[in-house]
Design a protein around this nucleic acid. Structure first.
Lengths: 139, 139
DNA sequence: GCGAGAGTTGACGTTAACGTAAACGGCATA
DNA sequence: TATGCCGTTTACGTTAACGTCAACTCTCGC
């Protein structure tokens, strides 16, 4: 008996509103089953939602997320389509690696600032030996 | 003579419109000098713009970018402020590392799909020897 | 001295991604 | 049976991040 989820459960789990999840369905990113009127989400639906939200955190639009997810579930038969898919995977990876570089740069700078900050704090807390120059650090 | 830039130059360099750059100024993220009416951007302004756009690629809002940039330029004197800044740097780093994990997960999955895709393509192009069973990889 | 090209200030328009409110249905329980 | 608590649809509202005019102003090159 495969576990299923209600919209409220998923909303609580991922920290979004039910409206948000319904919105993704309106855009065709989710297709839960129905039990009467009520939506019933499968584990696969839950995974898709997780992917969408991960994409969102990384700044992808819902349209982009749709395309990414489309690559994930295999629905491609002939060689032509497979080659096209490989092409798009390559593009996507290039994009992701660029963002990876952005992120690393950001982290590096952040740690640099942190270092300077710690140094300044040490100066403030222990204004002992000092080089030539005034006391207040002008910039 | 420190190099300066016009709005058109920056727009061309970073692939955005002048309107976008002015918009960032409206929100207080940039404060170029003026030569009469015209904006004159310094190298520092250009760097700030680069940071904003990097943040944008990573899905940060302009408000978030403003805060991040605020951490970068040091304008904090006393120990209290420094500690507060260190705190915020820590939060920010936690956030960035979470996104880093997201990105790595995404890349890993993408490469997994790529592997399956190449395998399928090989099957299609050379449907020679085959193992027992269907051949389609179930998940 | 004038036209082209780049820049400027309003000010309204647009799109994505939801928020929010109204009006309703089903079911558990006090 | 009434009172919540979930869930549903429909539909308009909101916010962020610009796009898109219109109407000017400089400044250069001829």
């Amino acid at each position: 008996m495969h576990r299923t989820f209600t919209i409220g459960e998923l909303a609580a789990e991922f920290g979004v509103t039910a409206r948000t999840i319904r919105h993704y369905e309106e855009l065709g990113l989710l297709r839960p089953q129905r039990r009467g009127q009520a939506r019933i989400y499968s584990a696969a639906d839950r995974t898709r939602l997780k992917l969408i939200l991960r994409g969102r955190r990384l700044g992808f639009s819902l349209g982009e997320s749709r395309e990414i997810i489309a690559m994930y579930d295999p629905e491609h038969g002939n060689a032509q389509q497979l080659r096209r898919l490989l092409e798009r995977i390559g593009e996507q990876r290039t994009l992701l690696e660029a963002r990876l570089a952005d992120l690393h740069a950001m982290l590096a700078e952040l740690e640099e600032v942190e270092g300077g900050c710690r140094a300044a704090l040490a100066q403030v807390r222990a204004p002992t030996a000092r080089r030539a120059g005034g006391g207040s650090s002008s910039n």
